[in-house]
């Protein structure tokens, strides 16, 4: 019993030390024991499409039950902005979002990116990730409202991600930010105004006005997600 307690104490002081070192250069303050992250996750995303670039992905934590989108339901303006322009600034500012990390750069096909999520036991462990396929009109991929508390220490969780269509812009394959076309447009005319599974792109071979090439075609899944609990 005593042995266990002592071990626990050792870990706690280790936490305190690392937290103090990273926060304020050696000020060994007891308060840091409370704020030290108890849940640390590594979140890895892989772009496994042939030729679709992902806009800088936004990884967020938020209140339990919050969903950045729901299939069959109308998209928020914040999601529409992400899906049409790749701009996640409205999405990460939504009420209920508790923290966010947005990448500096887009992800090229074949790219892999890893984020570290450090959460205290008092934080919600619900996370979402969203990124636009920038050579689509309003296509995006990601996952929403995943509860990380189900992942045990040292274990990892894998999921293959499919492409959704925000339902907010007609797929004319011209108004594509990835090809220099129009990004966000508030009009939802010509689309179904609900989030659905993306049907893919036609390219110029089948839609003469399309600016897309065969390399932009994609099939599901478009991304691979790995979440590993490190601490």
């Amino acid at each position: 019993m005593i042995k266990i307690k002592r071990q626990k104490y050792r870990y706690l002081s280790l936490f305190a030390l690392t937290a103090a070192l990273s926060a304020c250069g050696g000020n060994d303050n007891e308060d840091h024991v409370v704020t030290a992250p108890s849940h640390v996750y590594e979140v890895t995303l892989m772009n496994i499409t042939q030729g679709q670039i992902f806009s800088p992905p936004a990884l967020t934590t938020h209140t339990q039950g919050m969903k950045l989108w729901q299939a069959g339901k109308t998209a928020s303006i914040a999601l529409e902005a992400l899906a049409e322009s790749g701009d996640s600034s409205q999405l990460i500012a939504l009420s209920g979002i508790t923290s966010s990390q947005v990448s500096n750069a887009p992800m090229m096909p074949g790219d892999m990116q890893t984020w570290t999520l450090e959460l205290a036991s008092t934080d919600t462990l619900n996370v979402s990730l969203a990124t636009m396929l920038i050579n689509t009109n309003d296509g995006f991929t990601g996952f929403t409202d995943m509860d990380l508390s189900a992942i045990a220490l040292g274990e990892s969780y894998q999921k293959m991600l499919v492409v959704y269509d925000a339902g907010t812009e007609m797929n004319d394959e011209v108004a594509l930010p990835g090809s220099g076309g129009e990004a966000f447009n508030a009009s939802r005319a010509g689309d179904v105004d609900r989030v659905y599974a993306h049907a893919g792109v036609l390219t110029s071979h089948e839609l003469s006005s399309s600016v897309l090439l065969t390399e932009h075609k994609f099939d599901n899944p478009a991304a691979k997600l790995i979440i590993k609990r490190m601490q």
Partner: peptide, 14 residues
């Protein structure tokens, strides 16, 4: 053009 030189999901035949 082969835009992804890693093993990836096949985009399908055209």
């Amino acid at each position: 053009n082969e835009a992804n030189d890693k093993v990836h999901i096949h985009p399908g035949n055209v």
